[in-house]
Simulated assay, not measured.
Amino acid sequence: MKHWFRLHRLALASTLRLFLANPLASLLNLLVVGIAVALPLGLYTVVANLQQLAGRLPTEPQASVFLTPSANAADLARVQALVKADSHVLAVRHISRDTALKELEQSSGMSELLAGLGSNPLPDTLSLTLREGDTAGLEALATRLKADAAVDQVQLDSDWARRLASIIQVGREASNTVAALFGAGLLLVTVNLIRMQILTRRDEIEVSKLIGATDPFIRRPFLYFALLQGLLGGLVGLAVVALSLDRLNGPIAQLAKLYGEHFALKLPEPVALAVALAIVLLLSLLGAALSVRRHLRALDT
């Protein structure tokens, strides 16, 4: 066991010497790995944050029925009876003109400006909670409501939420595709880098084999080199994503404030980050193993 630990300690020391022998090239390689990690991880982070934001939105379809400013109590009662009689409507909430104006004053902070309007320009509104599923029935309901003279506009409030969910699905598939492409790129970069290391130390490897060095002994420093490069490059990628989110969160917070919301981009959970780093290490190790195996076989022939 002591001999085994000693061999790994020697391999790790050889790996550190490889890094320190050419610090500029090592730094450039780490930046390449870091960028390969940062791009798919950053895209995944944005999609995960949008998914979290979408989860705060109402999932059931909703609609708003805006009455004309001239609609009276009889018109309101008629429209209410029309929507309540429809099987697609689960619940109806009446928002009076005065209530709508008060909510607008509280949310916009423009009470003085609205007070100077004189009369209330907002109409009575019916907020509908609809039943899922029958798109044709919902469209037929909207058509019947629009045909009433007291109805000014019918708006399906959940359409944009469904569009957002579709965009998130596209983003998720795009992040998976980008991750696969950059993962393959990372594998090829590691294979090429280890190949260059082997060619640089070809004479040393041949002499080592002549004096009895085994393939695992020769292979071990290159595997450690790939693991160390993957670990440091993965940390560089995480740092790039974290710094990018920090720069974006300022403008995003200001934008969210305009809509009366509080939202900030966050890094994925530690488990997700650990999985991403483990995948980087695995790809680096796999690339190194393939490259070393191929070139050691070439040296034996």
Results as ranks from 00 to 15, higher is better:
His3Trp: 08
Trp4Phe: 14
Arg6His: 12
Ala11Met: 03
Ala25Ile: 11
Ala25Trp: 01
Leu28Pro: 04
Ala36Leu: 04
Val37Lys: 01
Leu43Arg: 00
Leu43Thr: 01
Val46Gly: 02
Asn49Ser: 07
Leu50Pro: 07
Leu53Glu: 03
Leu53Asn: 03
Ala54Phe: 11
Arg56Pro: 03
Glu60Cys: 05
Ala63Ile: 00
Ser64Tyr: 10
Ala73His: 07
Leu76Gln: 14
Ser87His: 15
Val92Pro: 10
Arg93Glu: 12
Arg93Gln: 12
Ile95Phe: 06
Glu103Tyr: 12
Leu104Thr: 04
Ser108Lys: 13
Glu112Phe: 10
Leu114Arg: 13
Leu117Ile: 11
Gly118Arg: 11
Ser119Ala: 10
Asn120Ile: 06
Asn120Trp: 08
Pro121Cys: 09
Pro121Gln: 05
Leu122Ala: 13
Leu126Glu: 03
Glu132Thr: 10
Asp134Pro: 05
Leu138Phe: 11
Glu139Ile: 07
Ala140Val: 15
Leu141Lys: 01
Ala142Gly: 15
Arg144Tyr: 09
Ala150Tyr: 01
Ala150Met: 04
Leu156Trp: 04
Trp160His: 06
Arg162Asp: 07
Arg163Pro: 01
Ser166Tyr: 05
Gln169His: 05
Glu173Ser: 12
Val178Ser: 07
Ala180Asp: 09
Phe182His: 01
Leu186Asp: 00
Leu187Glu: 03
Leu188Met: 06
Val189Gly: 02
Val189Asp: 01
Arg201Cys: 07
Arg201Gly: 06
Glu204Pro: 08
Ile205Asn: 03
Ile205Ala: 07
Glu206Ile: 05
Val207Asp: 15
Val207Gly: 08
Ile211His: 11
Gly212Thr: 14
Pro221Leu: 02
Gly230Trp: 00
Gly233Cys: 15
Val236Tyr: 06
Val236Ala: 10
Val241Pro: 06
Leu245Glu: 14
Asn249Glu: 12
Ala253Asp: 02
Ala253Phe: 01
Gln254Ile: 08
Gly260Leu: 05
Leu267Trp: 08
Pro268Met: 06
Ala276Pro: 02
Leu277Trp: 04
Ile279Asp: 02
Val280Ala: 05
Leu282Gln: 06
Arg294Thr: 05
Arg297Met: 09
Asp300Leu: 12
Asp300Ser: 14
